[in-house]
Amino acid sequence: MDVFMKGLSKAKEGVVAAAEKTKQGVAEAAGKTKEGVLYVGSKTKEGVVHGVATVAEKTKEQVTNVGGAVVTGVTAVAQKTVEGAGSIAAATGFVKKDQLGKNEEGAPQEGILEDMPVDPDNEAYEMPSEEGYQDYEPEA
């Protein structure tokens, strides 16, 4: 019985440690998101679009440190934060509304985080759909 109880105690310690790591990862992701939003706020009209992409990228980098179902929630929060940063930029006159959601080359930025393969159960990952990809044929 002692062996059984000791095993359960060790398992509990492992769960607590994993929860603490997840909590730490979420806190880091939130900190990076805040950094990115402050970065966007300090940019001029020309830099705002690039700044919004930076927020998304920093958040995406930190999301990889967070495991399990938390990833889905962090990704949703990050996307809403990026959308909010863009709205703030438009409201303050840093950028025109028609410039939001495009990178410096004018290509749409939507789907940055949505296409990231995420499995809350950590069982399997699927690649994003290939609808947006084109076949590449090298020139002879």
Rank of each mutant, 00 (worst) to 15 (best):
Q109S: 12
V37H: 00
A17T: 11
E139M: 06
E139K: 10
P108Y: 05
K58W: 11
V26G: 00
E126R: 10
V16S: 08
V70G: 01
A89L: 14
A107I: 03
A17Y: 11
H50R: 13
K58Y: 13
G101F: 13
A107S: 10
G51T: 11
K58A: 13
K58H: 09
S42V: 10
A85D: 02
V77F: 07
A30I: 15
Q24S: 09
V15F: 15
P120A: 10
E83A: 09
Y125F: 08
A91L: 13
A53E: 08
A69H: 10
A30K: 02
K96N: 15
G25D: 03
K6N: 08
A11P: 00
K21Q: 05
E131M: 02
G25W: 11
G47P: 01
T92W: 15
K34S: 01
Q24V: 06
Y125W: 07
T33Q: 01
A19D: 00
G25F: 14
V82P: 02
A89P: 03
K23P: 00
P120M: 08
G111K: 09
T59I: 04
D115F: 10
Q79A: 08
V71L: 10
E123V: 13
G73V: 14
E105H: 01
D119K: 02
T44F: 13
A107C: 05
Y133C: 08
A19K: 02
K12P: 00
D121A: 08
I88Y: 02
G14V: 14
K6I: 11
E20R: 02
A69F: 09
K34V: 15
A90T: 10
T72C: 11
G31E: 04
T22C: 06
V37M: 09
G36A: 09
Q24N: 07
E61C: 06
N103T: 11
Q24M: 15
G41Y: 11
G86L: 14
G86H: 10
L113V: 15
A56P: 01
T59W: 14
G51V: 13
E57S: 04
N65A: 07
I112A: 03
D135M: 09
E137F: 08
E61T: 04
V15G: 00
Q109Y: 10
K80Q: 06
E104A: 06
E137V: 05
K34M: 03
E35H: 07
